[in-house]
Simulated scan of single mutants.
Amino acid sequence: MNRIDRLMGVLTTLQSKRYVSLDHLANKYEVSTRTVYRDLKALGEIGVPIDFDDQKGYSILQGFFLPPVSLSTEEANAIILVASLSERFTDSGTQKHIENALNKIKAVLRSSERLKIDQLQSQIRIYNRSEEQLPSGYLSPIQKAISEKEILQIEYCNNKGEISQREIEAIGLTFYSNQWHLIAWCWKRKEYRDFKVKQISKLSSQQEVFRKPEHYDMNDYLKSLH
């Protein structure tokens, strides 16, 4: 990797995380910490507002944004493949967000790169059997509720066909048995429950933050099931 590519990589990494350590950057780009320090200094000299915290590491001051100007062929191809998989593994709302994001990425690419992406995109298709049911369209609001820690009100139909109203605090999404599952604290049952997203018939946000003081980390919850 030449220095220009590495500088852009370091900048992208700083933009994607709140704080980054010198060792993390050195390991990621396979250079010495001294080289990374020089790269950070060079970014500062061209106007990138880099801040440093003794306890947390390096960061870019809030409000600064520099969009990426290029992608490698491999990076662009990976994005196209993941976007194509959304046709099979997400709902229509999420697919629309992915399409919008992909269009924004294309907008900053050179015309030759954009043409290659369009050609590849036209040649990747995901086959869905007609009987396969996609999620009910709630993946996007569920993700928002998880990140914003907002309480959700849902109408849920269990495997017995019984419909119930639930007030839940969503902690995460997981995909297994060929479908999405929402893991959430259920105030009705007073315990964590596993809800199949495609069996949620209604969903709305209470515009209220979580009331439960502490929650499982999603990874810890999944480990507890073993």
Rank of each mutant, 00 (worst) to 15 (best):
S70M: 04
H215E: 13
S86D: 06
T174D: 13
G44D: 05
R18M: 09
L22D: 13
L71Y: 06
Y176A: 10
K223L: 15
Q179F: 01
A76M: 11
I200S: 11
K198L: 12
Q123M: 13
D23R: 11
S204A: 15
H226W: 12
P68Q: 12
K196P: 03
N128V: 08
K223Q: 15
S130G: 00
M218T: 09
E155R: 05
L11R: 02
A184R: 07
Q153M: 12
R88Y: 02
S122M: 09
L7A: 03
F65N: 11
I183W: 07
S136F: 02
K56T: 07
L40K: 05
F89N: 02
P67H: 00
K28F: 05
K96T: 15
I124L: 14
M8V: 08
I60W: 00
Y37I: 02
R189W: 02
F175R: 01
A170W: 03
I117D: 06
R110W: 00
L139H: 04
Y156A: 07
G63Q: 07
G63L: 07
Y176C: 10
I60D: 06
L109F: 03
F64P: 06
S59L: 03
S205A: 15
R114D: 15
E169G: 04
I146Q: 08
S32W: 01
K149A: 12
N219P: 00
S16W: 00
Q199R: 15
R189P: 01
G172A: 08
G44T: 08
K160P: 06
R166G: 11
I4W: 02
E162V: 08
Q153V: 13
Q207N: 14
K144N: 13
R125V: 15
R114Y: 04
K104G: 12
Y221M: 07
M1K: 06
D54W: 01
F64Y: 11
L71N: 01
L182F: 12
I126K: 08
D53Y: 06
L134K: 11
E150S: 14
I124A: 11
L22Y: 07
G161E: 09
L102H: 04
F195M: 13
L81T: 08
Q165N: 12
M218R: 03
K223T: 13
A42E: 10
R110Q: 13
A170L: 05
I4H: 05
Q143H: 04
Y37C: 03
Y58S: 02
K202Y: 14
Y156W: 01
H181T: 11
T35N: 05
